[in-house]
């Protein structure tokens, strides 16, 4: 076995669903947890915009209703990324990844800014079509090896996962929110509400790190 993520030092079992904590997954998990706590505890900033053609500038204030919705979405996004970091099941991982996609849209959906909403919509289209390679990658892992458990796959006793299947999985994750599709997402970060918006970029980053680990473990 290629010990890509280091040897796991703790297994958390729920029936046949096993979460495992190796040095890499634990680091990523802690980071997701840390930023989720940030989201829960911090208040959004008031974004300053310059009114062109005059000396005036204005600060955008987020209304309480919008704040609650976005805080909820950002927390859900944090929880989904935490789950994706430690799950030991390929299909669960893809589900968490697409959940992150949904919550990412949710984080900016309440923003009353046409640019942001347009970007979120385009991103949503990309991420929704990315579920095709994502789910089919996971399904083909099961089809070629007979198991979805990363722990079993890492042992090397199962048949090797073909490169095409791995690239399907990675392609799906890239579509869920990495460069070059990230370009659709960058505009979303214009939305005010720093702690929530940060979850968008953090979650996709963590998920990408994890899929690299998964693809190299399989």
């Amino acid at each position: 076995m290629i010990a890509v993520g280091g040897e796991p030092f703790y297994y958390l079992e729920f029936g046949d669903i096993v979460l495992y904590f190796s040095p890499v997954t634990t680091t990523l998990f802690v980071l997701a947890l840390l930023f989720t706590l940030f989201v829960l505890a911090s208040r959004p900033e008031r974004q300053v915009d310059i009114a062109f053609g005059s000396d005036a500038y204005l600060a955008k204030v987020i209304t309480p209703g919008e704040l609650h919705f976005r805080k909820f979405m950002a927390t859900a996004c944090g929880l989904a990324s935490m789950g994706a970091m430690v799950t030991g099941d390929v299909f669960d991982f893809t589900l968490f990844a697409s959940l992150v996609g949904i919550t990412n849209i949710g984080i900016v959906a309440a923003v009353k800014n046409r640019h942001v909403q347009n970007a979120a919509y385009q991103y949503g289209l990309v991420s929704l079509s990315a579920t095709v390679p994502l789910f089919s990658g996971a399904a083909m892992v099961a089809a070629t090896t007979g198991t979805l458990s990363l722990i079993e796959l890492a042992k090397g006793t199962y048949p090797a996962v073909p490169l095409a299947v791995k690239s399907f999985l990675v392609l799906g994750i890239i579509g869920e929110g990495m460069a070059p599709f990230y370009a659709a997402k960058a505009e979303m970060f214009r939305a005010p509400g720093a702690p929530y918006v940060i979850m968008c970029s953090l979650s996709s980053l963590l998920i990408f790190l994890r899929v690299v680990e998964i693809a190299m473990t399989m």
């Binding site: 697409s98 996609g101 849209i105 959906a109 979120a120 929704l128 579920t131």
Partner: peptide, 16 residues
């Protein structure tokens, strides 16, 4: 998950 994403996008389209 697919349906949820579709619903979210539909709502987003309406607000957009």
């Amino acid at each position: 998950v697919g349906i949820a994403e579709l619903l979210a996008l539909g709502q987003l389209y309406l607000t957009k």
